[in-house]
Design a protein around this nucleic acid. Structure first.
Lengths: 257, 257
DNA sequence: TTAATAGTGTCTGTAAGACAATATTGC
DNA sequence: GCAATATTGTCTTACAGACACTATTAA
């Protein structure tokens, strides 16, 4: 790790002591998180909150919040906001930086730079509750119509132009990213209910939801074996799970690398 | 494109008018650019500047500068800084966002969020000049030793722990990124002296420099033909360039997609 | 036995890597 | 012809997709 920088000369110490950050106008910085999960029908969902303050009051948005300057890294801002929103154990969560959005007019208050993150979380670990800045929080299925995306829950459907800020763009970027990453990264394991004990079909359903297509069982097994079992990323537990009326299924455990 | 947000109610208009961005402390935001080029020996180089102000005075750093709040997007900051540093026509340049670095102690002055960019520019288009904030600017070959990277020019060699801020980390991230992207994206074309008229061997040398390995001519031609010529991304000019003592070489032109 | 799902085997096409062979220039 | 480089062809291996086939459970 990089050591902390030590000013060398008295002149430099003096400069830093007298540095006025206020000399230049500064923007606000937020971390905003696109939380993906699979619902009970194994459809890909994202978490949206309903804003209860201006701007975009009563609009749906992705969760996020402002960086606490000098106290935390922007990654930690994302972790903190995710914790406040979902209450989950942050350190074992898939949370990756996605892209930084910095148009001057994306927020009507002031120039706000948004560092966007993607999180993949099994629904069983999500405790969805409206936080301080939200009057509601819900999971929405991602659907498409001629105008782009739709966000569908049991009670509400939102078209993407109704989302707060540029959050539709952020979500589209996130969906594109996880769809392309799934082909060469083991991201899907993070959506398993229990990655220490799962069947290949549970994993396959995750791939199908993310890729939005059906996969061939035999071919999926071949690449699963080659890429994960044979490389040691996944261990065969040599145990089976039996469900009524079906042939028992082999169980695997995700080790990682 | 997303329409500009229009506040709906008088209440909301009032809120935005009275919004005090200063209520919360804000960080500074910079765009910093890792500029890659190939030198006359076809080695991969990066552009570094020597800082002439505190902090890290007289240390080498990647070019960059502060966002002008409310006036430009963070992408435009990167373009502007790159223009100020190299004087080149910004609109035809490969400039892509890399990653955002936001540790609170990466700059001793104050909390500075750095949105890092990668640029790929042919050396013939680079006019290297020290700008306002630099006493020198130079291209450096990237070399490796046991401790990590070295940056080597004719007169100077810098080990990565001598770079300003966390710029060694940023450069390492950038190198890793372009090395992996080269296998599935047509980034290499951006380093051609003239992408409207080039030979397959000029392109091959760029691939070899970025991947840091020798490539088989026959196999390179096969994938070049399949991925670029047959897809229309590259046109065969049906003309040859003849050099003395050698079999003439076919010329191609990059169209893009 | 049968319905339902788990799991295997085979064939085809494509692509990557190693490497041999042929082609065209200036001298 | 020869040196130098350009270009083509062949062989092997890996892998993805399509699809037919076999296996094991509960009822």
């Amino acid at each position: 790790m990089k050591k902390q920088y030590m000013p060398m000369s008295d002149e430099e110490k003096e400069f830093i002591k007298n540095y006025k950050a206020d000399a230049y106008e500064r923007p606000s910085v937020t971390a905003d998180i696109v939380v993906f999960t699979l619902d009970d029908e194994d459809d890909l969902n994202i978490l949206l909150i309903k804003r209860n303050g201006f701007p975009y009051k009563d609009h749906w948005a992705i969760p996020g919040g402002f960086l606490e300057v000098g106290k935390e890294s922007i990654d930690d801002t994302a972790k903190r906001e995710l914790y406040e929103e979902t209450g989950l154990d942050i350190d074992n969560i898939y949370l990756k930086q996605l892209y930084t959005f910095g148009n001057p007019d994306r927020d009507p208050r002031t120039h706000v730079i948004s560092v966007a993150y993607t999180a993949l979380i099994p629904k069983s670990q999500l405790t969805i509750s409206a936080g301080d800045d939200a009057s509601d929080a819900k999971l929405f299925k991602i659907r498409y119509d001629v105008n782009g995306m739709l966000f569908v829950s049991d009670e509400v459907t939102i078209s993407e132009d109704k989302l707060a800020f540029d959050h539709a763009t952020i979500i589209r970027t996130a969906v594109t990213r996880i769809r392309s990453r799934i082909d060469y990264e083991p991201d899907a394991f993070n959506l398993l209910k229990d990655k220490t004990e799962f069947t290949i079909y549970e994993l396959k359903r995750i791939y199908e939801s993310i890729k939005n297509t059906e996969l061939d069982t035999a071919n999926f097994r071949k690449s699963f074996t080659r890429n994960y079992v044979n490389t040691g990323i996944v261990t065969d537990l040599n145990r089976k799970r039996t469900e009524t009326g079906k042939k028992p299924t082999e169980l695997y455990s995700y080790i990682g690398n």
